[in-house]
Design a protein around this nucleic acid. Structure first.
Lengths: 233, 233
DNA sequence: AAATGGCAGTGACTTAAGTCACACTTGGAG
DNA sequence: CTCCAAGTGTGACTTAAGTCACTGCCATTT
């Protein structure tokens, strides 16, 4: 069965035996989503969590003016909606499919039982949440202490890292729209656009349409970390 | 023994029997800190995590210009530094004592062993991290989508909640300096000061020195959530 | 091959927030 | 008591970021 294979791929359930995975997979229910469809809304009652078999999702919050801030994104093999499973509360953010996606739903109670029966699952979940917490802490830092162009620099470096591991000049196609970048980085479309042109003027990147070339990764990384504004007069 | 009593109080180890706690307590080591002393630095190699027996700490990041952003604060009974225990990385932020504090240190390996032996500990840890993640998500939202005075409003409401549960007009003494508030809320001292006077002008609070009175909790809460700026002309 | 809708780029303007400098409280410590 | 350090308040100024309003560019779709 396909579901079993999918569960096997995840960091959460990868440690389980074939048999156990079969039993688990029988308890899951399936959910198909088209791009843009919502999985759940912030504040909704939560009955369980999701595993992404294929596709990608974003978890986000929406401000009073309608602006969107992405909290985290997840792709195939990852899970989301775990928080209410472990602390009993409501879903902490709204989740939307960023591509057509196939999800498995796992009930709260089943998950608890698994954690008691197989401590390695609890440990794996702890690892997943820890990584997420790291990411959130960095996002907090950059929202509070860094400028937009620095945040964009780090997004570009991260995108690059996910493609080719390590060269000193990397070129790739941006799959994100400026609007999506803005929502991740905590600004608006126009500012993203201007930041790109500024990074280009400063010789850190080269743009041609949606094609980005990081001209000097070293410099970009140090810009991301250390750039300080005019200071005093 | 005092250590055992302290461990018993924590959400993490509260479920353990007296005997187990004694055994655990023997594995911990003690650490005393004066106000302002550092527990560990962001990026430091991590050998384990801490339990706060008494005192308070703040976990924070420091920007290139020296500005500080608090990620979370913890008080007696809480734990911190768990992330590297579960994901094997370095400490994600710098932790400093906000008062004279007494901590217990628990080794990574001991913690792992406990999680295997007592799944309820792993579950408790999952709950702790889930709560922290909720807090971080809200901080991200407010840094990205809310104005400083709104963030201060929510800080005031939170402070109030931690004292008297629910009345409609609450008065209390702010223990935080404006500087500390700024570091939590993601601004600078001066802006906090001005925000306070503005909240006062708008009739939401009454200030007398460090004494704050929330005049209209309803209104303050709705200001915190929904306030929208001038919009268009 | 038009036509349409979604994106990107940019000028012009506004504004919240940050910086600097200085004066004013205040609550301990000697 | 009074002195002092630490903290607060505030005016004046700068600036990053946000808003509005267009223009122009593609990539589909019919």
């Amino acid at each position: 069965m396909d579901k079993v294979k999918a569960l096997k791929q995840t960091p959460l359930f990868g440690s389980l035996s074939e048999d156990t995975l079969v039993k688990l997979s029988e308890k899951t229910s399936e959910k198909f989503l088209k791009t843009g469809e919502m999985v759940f809304l912030e504040g909704e009652e939560a009955k369980g969590m999701y595993v992404i078999v294929s596709g990608t999702i974003r978890a986000m919050r929406i401000g009073a003016d309608g602006r969107e801030q992405v909290i985290h994104t997840e792709r195939a093999g990852a899970t989301f909606g775990e928080i209410p499973v472990f602390d009993g509360g409501l879903y902490p953010s709204t989740v939307v499919a960023d591509e057509d996606s196939f999800l498995l739903f796992i009930d709260k109670k089943d998950m608890h039982q698994l954690c008691y029966e197989y401590p390695e699952i609890a440990l794996a979940a702890l690892k997943v949440l820890s990584k997420r917490l790291r990411y959130c802490a960095s996002l907090i830092e950059s929202l509070s202490l860094k400028e937009v162009s620095q945040r964009i620099a780090s997004l570009l470096l991260e995108e690059a890292r996910q493609r080719k591991p390590n060269e000193n000049s990397i070129e790739f196609k941006l799959t994100l729209t400026n609007q999506q970048i803005a929502a991740r980085v905590g600004t608006v479309r126009e500012v993203v656009s201007r930041s790109f042109t500024r990074l280009q003027q400063d010789g850190l990147i080269k743009l041609q349409g949606r094609n980005v070339k990081l001209l000097n990764i070293e410099a970009l990384a140090s810009f991301e970390k250390f750039y300080i504004v005019s200071q005093n007069k």
